Simulated assay, not measured.
Amino acid sequence: MKPLLFKIAKTEEESIRILQEDYPYFYDNLHYHSETQIMVILEGEGTYFVGDAIGNFKAGDIFILGSNLPHFFRSDKSYYEENTHLRSKNISIIFSLESLGEKFLELPEFYAIKQLLHYSKRGLMVQGNARTKLYQSANKMLHKKGIERLIYLLKQLHKLSRSNELMALSHINFDHEPKPTDTKKVNTVINFIMDNFSKDITLAEVANVANLSVNAFCRFFKQHTRKTFSQFLNEIRIGHACKQLIEEGYSVKEVAFDSGYYNISYFNRQFKSITGYTPSQYIKTHTQKHHRAS
């Protein structure tokens, strides 16, 4: 998938940008940037695509997105409706320590941080106690300026580099810089899938959206997402199903139909293949984790 090169606007007075964003929905075009980004979800929920990983996000989640890592965060459908009061809010800490000089990260004191930044090229989700502390630190960083902000960021990165509560999302590192290209076709396809995954989408239909033959589309999609169209569609659908099972309280049959499956046996097979659980096991496991956490 050819992502859009996203240029982060900077001023001469800052090497670290902190954005506090409040929009109806998150920026949902696949893109990448040379800087590392720590994204703290303050409000909102939806689906993320990070590298080759697909999953759900919600308020309180924190992601570390490495340099040149393709990603997008798409809010749930309800956020796009007219006259809704739903908001999508986040704090983004955007930085490039390489801008501090070629030898900066070569210092022995920064070895662990350098390893963390390399690891972040797979996309990281911060969990447990580390997430709680980083959530608080991100809010504090909003009020810091200049050298204080830089020192504070380095301290947080140092803590994260020693944490065992970071979960890699993508199966591979995206450590090469993609060539800038026109991504209108790619994002048109993604938006079509996200808007219609609950319907019966055919391969010919989505290939037509991309204005490609079926064979050309299959090659194009697999080359750039490292997934077949069927794999991508099933992961989007099962992610939606997981969310409904644990948040909405619908029956398995209702969830299957709403996620685009009209054959319950096929839905159950796909669900277990992707999550490792049957729907009933998934509900039970999540309920037990919720009770332990509370």
Score class of each variant (00 low, 15 high):
residue 109 E to H: 01
residue 192 F to D: 00
residue 215 N to L: 04
residue 178 P to A: 03
residue 235 E to C: 15
residue 121 K to E: 03
residue 260 G to M: 01
residue 111 Y to W: 06
residue 286 H to T: 12
residue 184 K to C: 11
residue 279 P to K: 09
residue 94 I to G: 02
residue 62 I to Y: 00
residue 79 Y to H: 04
residue 280 S to H: 06
residue 255 V to C: 00
residue 207 A to P: 05
residue 23 Y to I: 09
residue 171 H to Q: 09
residue 111 Y to K: 04
residue 155 K to P: 00
residue 35 E to T: 08
residue 244 Q to A: 13
residue 82 E to V: 05
residue 39 M to H: 07
residue 88 S to V: 09
residue 35 E to H: 14
residue 114 K to S: 13
residue 120 S to Y: 00
residue 164 N to F: 06
residue 250 Y to E: 10
residue 211 N to Q: 14
residue 241 A to N: 08
residue 239 G to E: 10
residue 67 S to P: 06
residue 260 G to N: 04
residue 193 I to F: 05
residue 253 K to D: 15
residue 18 I to W: 12
residue 288 Q to K: 14
residue 245 L to M: 11
residue 90 N to K: 14
residue 289 K to N: 13
residue 113 I to S: 03
residue 153 L to N: 00
residue 67 S to M: 02
residue 16 I to M: 10
residue 89 K to T: 01
residue 187 N to E: 15
residue 256 A to T: 02
residue 58 K to P: 04
residue 165 E to R: 14
residue 283 I to Y: 09
residue 54 I to D: 03
residue 201 I to S: 13
residue 72 F to W: 14
residue 219 R to F: 11
residue 94 I to W: 05
residue 130 A to C: 02
residue 96 S to D: 10
residue 146 G to F: 03
residue 132 T to W: 07
residue 192 F to H: 01
residue 100 L to D: 03
residue 265 S to Y: 15
residue 238 I to D: 00
residue 273 S to I: 06
residue 142 L to S: 12
residue 128 G to H: 12
residue 212 L to W: 02
residue 275 T to V: 12
residue 255 V to L: 12
residue 9 A to W: 10
residue 94 I to E: 02
residue 51 G to C: 08
residue 257 F to R: 07
residue 18 I to A: 08
residue 66 G to A: 08
residue 170 S to P: 04
residue 14 E to Y: 11
residue 179 K to R: 14
residue 288 Q to H: 15
residue 6 F to G: 07
residue 40 V to K: 06
residue 156 Q to M: 09
residue 105 L to I: 00
residue 258 D to W: 06
residue 69 L to C: 01
residue 30 L to K: 07
residue 56 N to E: 09
residue 123 G to W: 01
residue 102 E to W: 12
residue 119 Y to I: 14
residue 147 I to C: 05
residue 115 Q to H: 12
residue 123 G to I: 00
residue 192 F to P: 00
residue 172 I to A: 11
residue 82 E to H: 11
residue 192 F to W: 05
residue 258 D to E: 15
residue 19 L to H: 09
residue 7 K to V: 14
residue 249 G to Y: 10
residue 269 R to Q: 15
residue 279 P to Q: 07
residue 286 H to Q: 07
residue 153 L to R: 02
residue 190 I to H: 07
residue 98 E to M: 05
residue 28 D to I: 06
residue 55 G to F: 08
residue 148 E to L: 11
residue 285 T to C: 08
residue 64 I to E: 04
residue 142 L to V: 03
residue 54 I to Y: 04
residue 230 S to H: 15
residue 156 Q to H: 06
residue 16 I to A: 08
residue 277 Y to A: 01
residue 131 R to S: 07
residue 20 Q to N: 13
residue 52 D to P: 02
residue 243 K to R: 09
residue 100 L to A: 01
residue 161 S to E: 00
residue 125 M to K: 04
